[in-house]
Design a protein around this nucleic acid. Structure first.
Lengths: 148, 148
DNA sequence: CGGTATCCCTGAAGATACTG
DNA sequence: CAGTATCTTCAGGGATACCG
């Protein structure tokens, strides 16, 4: 993009956006969670241009979200690292938000499920340190530094 | 961007990205959670160009994430709608992911806190329908439609 | 199959001057 | 203060031909 990099931001959200904010990245990660590992499969399922896919995959590997070859599985196979797999929380949050607010007519069919029973997950909940469940209005961002 | 809109996607993640994927949007929402309501304050805290801020704010209002004037508070005040406030889950997920993985030297100071005691939230947990806590590898995306 | 290399286009973002 | 208008730049993305 055009903006200054957020890589040095003190805000974790800004830094995350810097890594994961590119349009295709989260969708590629989503496909990786679906078990997709090969270039051609990512390309076909996403309809992304091949050269872009090359760049995106390389960046995701550089950022430690996907691994390939010696580090991970087979050559020519992209698999999620632990860091990448931890993006599941972000994907779940976005998926649930989208399901709730962006489907005017009916709900989308669940795609994110518990592996064991293939049933949809329950909604994410915010919890305080002591386990109390918090609503979306019980949380606050501290204005710490005056900038970001 | 250049890509086809994801607005009609059956995947909730893709649709969410379509609304919230723009770089600045989540940061603007973050500021809104911090209590920022005024144009000049968004502009100063984010360092975003004024014309871009105009466009982004308008889009966020159109998308029902922020409200202003008659719908919401005062004129010239941007406040979160319920839909917007529900983005807290996504922000928390990204914030926690970034805190965990993107700060090589030390943790960032917590900014996302429980309003009551100003203590950091606990980590998000995935839960199955019956409340069992799931790890980041216990979840699966169904490959339903072959495309998206 | 798994990419790279070109070429082009577009829209997001920046800077800045201006208006009500 | 809350924008709008204009001009420019640039990186992300698409299409496609090519390579090992």
């Amino acid at each position: 993009m055009k903006h200054k990099s957020f890589a040095k931001e003190t805000c974790a959200i800004a830094r995350s956006l810097n890594v994961v904010g590119e349009w295709w990245n989260l969708l590629i990660v989503r496909e990786a969670f679906s078990g997709i590992t090969k270039f051609a499969d990512f390309q076909k399922r996403l309809g992304i241009a091949r050269n872009i896919l090359t760049v995106r995959l390389r960046q995701l590997v550089d950022d430690g979200i996907l691994q390939t070859g010696k580090n991970g599985g087979e050559r020519f196979e992209y698999t999620l690292t632990d860091k990448g797999r931890d993006l599941i929380y972000t994907l779940v949050a976005m998926s649930q938000w989208g399901s709730k607010w962006l489907f005017t007519s009916g709900k989308p069919s669940p795609r994110l499920v518990d592996k064991q029973d293939l049933l949809e997950l329950s909604s994410l909940q915010l919890r305080s340190r002591n386990g109390r469940i918090l609503g979306n209005n019980d949380v606050e961002f501290l204005k710490t530094h005056g900038k970001h």
